[in-house]
Each structure stands twice: as structure tokens, then as C-alpha cells.
Computed example of a mutant assay.
Amino acid sequence: MPTLSALYRYPIKSTAGETLTRAAVAEEGLRHDRRFMVVKPGGGFVTARKYPALQRVCARFDGGQLSLMHDDHAAVVESRHAFAARPFDTHVWADDFTALTTTFRLDAWFSRIMGEPVHLLWLGERSNRYREKIGTRVSFADGHPLLLTTEASLADVNARAAATHVMLQFRPNVVVAGGEAFAEDGWTRIRIGEVVFRVAKPCKRCVMTTVDPATGRRRPDGEPTRTLARYRKGDDNEIYFGQKLIAENTGELVVGQDVEILE
């Protein structure tokens, strides 16, 4: 039986991933996952697609305190109680919604890293972003609460590519070990521990996969996108790797749990 082999969350959209051994699952995804996002003064969201150096920022958030670290900048720690929490209009792709401001100190820290004025926004306790298309609230994630990938599929890509790639390039939340490469393409419902997930749709891949998480730099050879394009391109000419998930109930995930394929 396949097993849950890794868990990752990203407290701030597009920053470095945090490795977990267990995580609570709520309606909007893993607890504390993508609860913050960097935006431009007008509300436009900023990601590592255009600013790959964002992946050099390590963030930790426990619900009460946000800690930020970067190799070239002094660390900063801010209490949630210090957040101004003023409504701020923003968007993620076609979804327009209102988030909350944090502090001038956090805005200034990210502005120094980005080299231009930006703000750090917080979703608050509950996201205002309800996606009717999928029938659930979503964090600052691109479109769905969670992303699943498998070790077998990554091994298949690495067997075809000239270089070895790591799972964090694909920025999953849930990683599954066991089974055949791309078996996840045929799953529609799965259970991990006590949580049942609907496998909503395959994930389109973009230039983000070419960013080396260790350096925050884009690979000049265009890999692994170039390799994926040879055999993972759909009829719509998009490249696919991984599956987007929607949890049907809440619960806790623990690395090592069995993954049951329900449908």
C-alpha cells in the first residue's frame, strides 16, 4: 500500500518550504499553509515565478508569532497581535478578495529583499477567498487547498532528465511513496489516516519548477520543464505534474500513514 512519505507547508506564498512530520488539515488546506502573501502597493501578488529569490526566505508561523529568516538579512520576529489587520484588496489570479495588513516592520523587511516597495498580507483566522468553482475556501495558494505528488513520478522524471531534481521544486503539500509512476493521474478519492481527499485536477506546471530551492535561482537549462514537456504535455499544450486535492473532512496527517485509494 502507498504511504505518506513527506509533508510540506509554505507559511508565505512562494517562500521556502517547511518540512513537517505531522500536520492538521482544515477546509483551507494544511494549518498555517500559505496564510501570508507578498503584494505590490496596488495589491498585485508577488511570486517566485518572477522573483525566484523569494525562495531564500524561510518563514515559520505558529498562529501567534511569525518568524522570518534570510541568509543576507537580519531575522525578524513579529507577534500576530502587532498586526494592524486593516482590510487590503488583493487577488490571486482571477480571484479578487480582501486580506489584512501586517506591520510596517514586516513590509520594510520584504521591501529590502525585493528592492522595491511591497506589503506582507495575512489572511486572518479565516480566508475571505471562497472559490465557488470548487466549493471551498482557499488560502493564498494558486487555486486549490493542497497539492499531492509521488516519489515514483519524480523518480521517473529524474530517470529521463540530465540532472537530478528534488521534490521541493514542485512545491507539494503531500508526498506519497509506493506504486507506479503517475498512478495518481487515475485517482479520484483517497484516504490518508482519518482524512478523505477528493483528487480535483492535475496541476499545471510553470517556470517555478526550474527554481533551485537551495539558491533561489532559476536553472538556465530550463529543467525539469524541458523534460516534462517531452511526455507530460496535455491536449491543451500545458505540462502536468501532481494532483490538486480538496479535503472532505478535517483531521491530522502523520508521515508514515497508509494512503488508501478509494476510487
Rank of each mutant, 00 (worst) to 15 (best):
T103L: 03
M167Q: 11
L120Q: 12
G115V: 07
L148K: 02
R105K: 10
H91D: 03
L147Y: 05
T188D: 13
A200W: 05
N158Q: 06
A94H: 14
R171D: 06
T136W: 06
R171A: 06
P202A: 02
D142T: 07
R137V: 00
F104V: 10
T136F: 07
F97Y: 14
F197T: 05
H144N: 09
T188P: 00
W122V: 12
L123H: 08
L120E: 12
A108S: 14
F182T: 05
L168K: 10
L168Q: 15
R112Y: 01
D96Y: 14
G143N: 13
A162F: 04
V166I: 13
A163F: 11
F110R: 10
S127I: 04
V118L: 10
Y130C: 00
S127V: 04
R126G: 09
Y130V: 00
T150K: 10
D142H: 05
T136D: 13
A99E: 12
T150P: 09
C203S: 08
R189V: 05
A152W: 10
A94Y: 12
W187K: 03
E116R: 14
E125R: 08
P117H: 14
F97L: 02
A163Q: 14
L106S: 07
E132Y: 00
K201P: 03
K133F: 04
C203H: 04
D185I: 00
W122M: 11
F97N: 04
S111L: 05
V92S: 08
V196I: 15
D107E: 12
R112H: 06
A155G: 02
V175G: 01
G115N: 09
K201R: 15
A94P: 10
I134Y: 06
V92D: 09
L123V: 11
F140H: 09
E151F: 03
T90K: 01
A108L: 08
L120M: 12
T136H: 11
F104D: 10
M167Y: 02
I113R: 06
T150R: 09
R191K: 14
D156G: 01
V176I: 15
W109E: 06
A108H: 13
A99K: 13
R160A: 13
G193I: 02
T150C: 08
D96H: 15
D96P: 07
V176N: 03
I134V: 14
T136S: 15
E151Q: 14
L148G: 02
V118K: 11
A177N: 09
H144V: 05
V195L: 10
W93A: 08
V174L: 06
I134M: 03
E184K: 03
F110S: 11
A94M: 10
G186V: 01
F97K: 03
G193K: 01
V138K: 11
A155L: 13
L168A: 12
L120W: 05
A161F: 12
I192N: 06
T98P: 09
D185Q: 01
K133G: 14
H144G: 01
R131L: 15
F110N: 10
L168P: 00
E125K: 07
A163G: 00
L123W: 00
H144L: 13
F170T: 01
A161T: 07
F170E: 02
S139I: 08
R129D: 07
A159G: 15
V196Q: 13
R131I: 13
V174G: 06
V118A: 11
T103H: 01
A108G: 02
T164Y: 09
